[in-house]
Design a protein around this nucleic acid. Structure first.
Lengths: 158, 158
DNA sequence: TTTGAAACTCATGGGCC
DNA sequence: GGCCCATGAGTTTCAAA
């Protein structure tokens, strides 16, 4: 599963705009539309491209508040860690969750429409995951940037 | 610019999968394909839907490392704050940036393919933004969840 | 005014060179 | 990988509620 120069270029392009036609992409990377379609299909089949999703403007889609949460857990029981991961992944308000080095064990990005929703979520977190020791909340006063783009170097060393 | 029950349902659906045909969406929400397309076009025109983008699997797209960075700045000069925001938004490796309450002023999610890239980025940050006082880095050992989905309540009180 | 249906246009996806 | 043809989705228009 290697990515050549064209694949990398393609991935950078569709990460920005997945609605572009194969024809448009073709002229940008210098291949035929057929080749583009074949590569995109392969990239999807192989799971390099996981999915295509619409990105909303938070201000126009209910004005949610974003919370950055640092979570500390008791590290003695590894099996509970896996449980917490699953729990986090299942919560729709949890946009992102990273297991990190440092003081905190997890960093979460939460999107909720009001403080009540957020509080209820955190209450359920500590209740349903007893090894959560403590957590600290940072409220996002504004969102400077928001995306999932993974920059892929396009150097021609395939 | 109000969102009725159908709009909200539609937004929740396209956030998960933007490749669904209008026909599929139509039977899910109980409208005709034409109505779906009209609504989607309106939602895009009004900027509720900002864009459609392909989401990559980090493990299959160069295995980037994710960093969670807390940044503290000198708060005396508000104009430098705006400058930093613009700087952050312009950096391709900065996936997300929030201006937050609490000890830190900004929380960043960085995606970089190696530590050198990350170090260089942070070096440039402090160099080109002199009011950055200090920052602390948390390396993501694993990504538990990754998305931009904003859950939209679908209650029928339009 | 907004919805549903039909005609039209064009991108997509297959097979072949 | 590029070319061509068939299929299917997106777009526009029009009629109806």
């Amino acid at each position: 599963m290697k990515l050549d120069r064209f694949d990398r270029q393609l991935l950078n392009l569709v990460q920005e705009d997945a609605t572009q036609t194969a024809e448009r992409l073709a002229e940008k990377v210098g291949l035929s539309p057929s080749a583009i379609q074949r590569r995109l299909r392969r990239l999807r089949e192989e799971g390099v491209i996981v999915r295509d999703c619409a990105v909303l403007d938070p201000k126009k889609a209910g004005r949610p508040t974003f919370f950055v949460v640092s979570v500390q857990v008791e590290r003695e029981r590894p099996e509970l860690l896996a449980q917490l991961r699953e729990w986090l992944a299942a919560q729709e308000h949890v946009q992102q969750a990273f297991y990190v080095t440092g003081e905190a064990d997890f960093v979460l990005i939460i999107a909720a429409h009001d403080t009540e929703t957020y509080d209820a979520l955190m209450a359920r977190m500590v209740q349903e995951n007893p090894h959560v020791r403590r957590f600290t909340t940072n409220v996002a006063l504004s969102v400077v940037k928001r995306g999932l783009t993974i920059p892929i170097p396009e150097e021609t060393d395939d």
